[in-house]
C-alpha cells in the first residue's frame, strides 16, 4: 500500500472516531438534560439531540468506516426515517404535556397556544350557560368532538 492511501485511511479513521465520540456525547448530553431541566418542555429539548444529530454523526461515521458507496443511500434512508418520525412523536408528547399542564408557564418565552385555548374556553363557557341548547344530534359534530378530544377541559379528566 502506498503512503498516500495509508494517510487517507488514517484521516478517515480519525474523522469517524471524532464523529463517534461526539455522537455518543450527544446521548450523554440528553441524559444530563433529562436529569437537570425543570419541566417537560425543556427536557424534550434535550431529548432530541441523540435522536437527530447524534444519529446523523454515528451513521456518518459508519459510512466512513465501511468505505463503500452503496451503503450511503441506506444510511441516508435510515436517518430520514428518524427525521420524519421524531417531530411527530415530539409534537404529540408536547401537546399532551400542554393539555395536562406539565409546564411552568413562567419559563415560556411565548405561549402561542394560549390564545386558542382561551377562545375555546370562552366558547365552552357560553355553551355551559345554555344547557337547554344542547342538541343530542349535534354530539358527533366536529366542534363537539374536538372539545372532547382535547379541549381545555381534558386536563381535569
Amino acid at each position: 500500500m502506498n503512503p498516500e492511501t495509508l494517510l487517507g485511511d488514517t484521516v478517515i479513521d480519525a474523522v469517524s472516531a471524532v464523529f463517534m465520540v461526539v455522537g455518543a456525547l450527544m446521548s450523554l448530553g440528553a441524559a444530563i438534560g433529562l436529569l437537570r431541566f425543570p419541566d417537560l418542555m425543556s427536557r424534550m429539548h434535550a431529548a432530541t439531540k441523540p435522536q437527530v444529530l447524534g444519529l446523523f454523526l454515528l451513521l456518518f461515521a459508519l459510512g466512513l468506516q465501511l468505505r463503500t458507496w452503496w451503503a450511503w443511500p441506506v444510511l441516508v434512508v435510515a436517518w430520514l426515517f428518524q427525521l420524519l418520525t421524531v417531530p411527530v412523536s415530539a409534537h404529540m408528547v408536547g401537546r399532551a404535556g400542554y393539555r395536562t399542564k406539565h409546564l411552568h408557564p413562567e419559563l415560556l418565552s411565548s405561549d402561542e397556544l394560549e390564545a386558542v385555548v382561551q377562545q375555546a374556553a370562552g366558547k365552552r363557557g357560553f355553551d355551559d350557560e345554555n344547557p337547554a341548547g344542547f342538541n343530542p344530534d349535534d354530539a358527533g359534530s366536529p366542534d363537539r368532538r374536538g372539545r372532547l378530544d382535547g379541549g381545555p377541559g381534558a386536563g381535569s379528566a
Binding site: V21, A24, S27, L28, A30, A31, L35
Partner: peptide, 10 residues
C-alpha cells in the same frame, strides 16, 4: 463508558 453513563441517566 459515555453511553453507559447516558443510559444510567435516562
Amino acid at each position: 463508558v459515555v453511553l453507559s453513563l447516558a443510559a444510567a441517566g435516562a
